[in-house]
Design a protein around this nucleic acid. Structure first.
Lengths: 191, 191
DNA sequence: GACAATCTACCTACTGGTAGGTAACATTCG
DNA sequence: CGAATGTTACCTACCAGTAGGTAGATTGTC
């Protein structure tokens, strides 16, 4: 029975609500009722919804960043790195969610500016990591593809996001797995 | 100056608002104000929001269906079929929108049941068409891939949806093009 | 007159947000 | 030491605006 600070409860629940329902379908009342506080208490920590949105996205980015650092630390093989990366997505989809970044990317036009920036940075950060893994893999001979690794990375990331959305839509995480397998296959196999 | 029936104006505008802002950020008031009628007039045609949602999705599906029929009629080459198909997506993203199906797939958990069904059907329909093109192409030797064409089709469709979302996020439709080029390349090239 | 289409007028529930209060605890200072 | 003064973390009680939705009157057309 840990005594989790209210502010962390708010961020965690807000993240999960946004991931499952979207930014506009997450309200201060939802949060307050489920945590057992009043909406004004949430305003105490996050005066405007934009502040909460930014905090949630920043927290999410931090989580991904340390997950990626963990992968980099434990896994030298680029192929395995991508596999572990896909594993992160699979965990999310197995809990009935889609990626927070993907969700907010579709809500994009309705987001406050500060949150929009966070979302773009999230995409950029993931793509940069992927581009690096792809480029390293190509140099080492593990991967084989033509053209810019940055462009390929953005295609890979977008494909994974799309596969997540479809996987949740049909409640079938094999959709994510098969999409990932296909990509890994075309990237690595000189047939 | 065509005299467009009000009901069609409602459907068209609702579609465009959902595509740009999402289901929950589209309101009867938005529609009424922009068309120049009262919200109660919309309720006359669509008593509940679910009715409107279903009508919009059904209309959208019909549009896609005839577009696909057009491609089938004019284009025998499977490769070119896919290229034209991607062209449909590019048009959408160039007008600052994402695919209605992709948008509603992320809003999925907040949708009324009738709309949810339409969204799943939309995905299934696109994937079925793609699977057919892929399978035909493989038989004719135009494409080359292993495994089920249905599985490959769902991966292709999801990748395109994801690429659209990213393309709008960065206001850069090259992201869609390069993702599509990559897929076509891996599907067709025996290297 | 019948009917379709549109209006006015209203409802309840919920939205993000504000103002001001209060109990508990910590800090400062005579 | 103990009283005064913050500060923190909530609360109650609002607010204007918006959500989807309803009832019933009005208008125009065949």
């Amino acid at each position: 029975m840990k005594n989790v600070p209210v502010i962390d409860q708010i961020i965690d629940l807000a993240q999960s609500l946004i991931q499952t329902r979207g930014y506009n379908a997450m309200s201060y009342r939802d949060l307050a009722d489920q945590i057992g506080i009043k909406t004004s208490s949430i305003h105490y920590y996050f005066p405007a919804k934009e502040d909460l949105g930014r905090a949630v996205m920043a927290h999410y980015r931090q989580g991904i960043r340390s997950a990626l650092a963990g992968i980099d630390a434990k896994t030298p093989d680029p192929r395995v790195k991508i596999e572990r990366y896909v594993g992160l997505f699979r965990e999310t989809v197995q809990s009935g969610c889609i990626c927070l970044g993907g969700m907010l990317a579709t809500d994009f036009t309705t987001l406050p500016q500060g949150v929009q920036t966070e979302v773009r940075n999230f995409f950029a950060e993931n793509e940069a990591w992927l581009a690096n893994v792809l480029e390293t893999g190509r140099t080492s001979g593990a991967f084989m593809f033509e053209g810019s690794s940055a462009v390929k990375a953005s295609a890979v990331f977008a494909a994974l996001e799309g596969a997540m959305i479809a996987a949740r839509l049909f409640n079938d995480d094999k959709r994510l797995v098969s999409a990932a397998d296909w990509m890994l296959d075309t990237l690595s196999a000189p047939r």
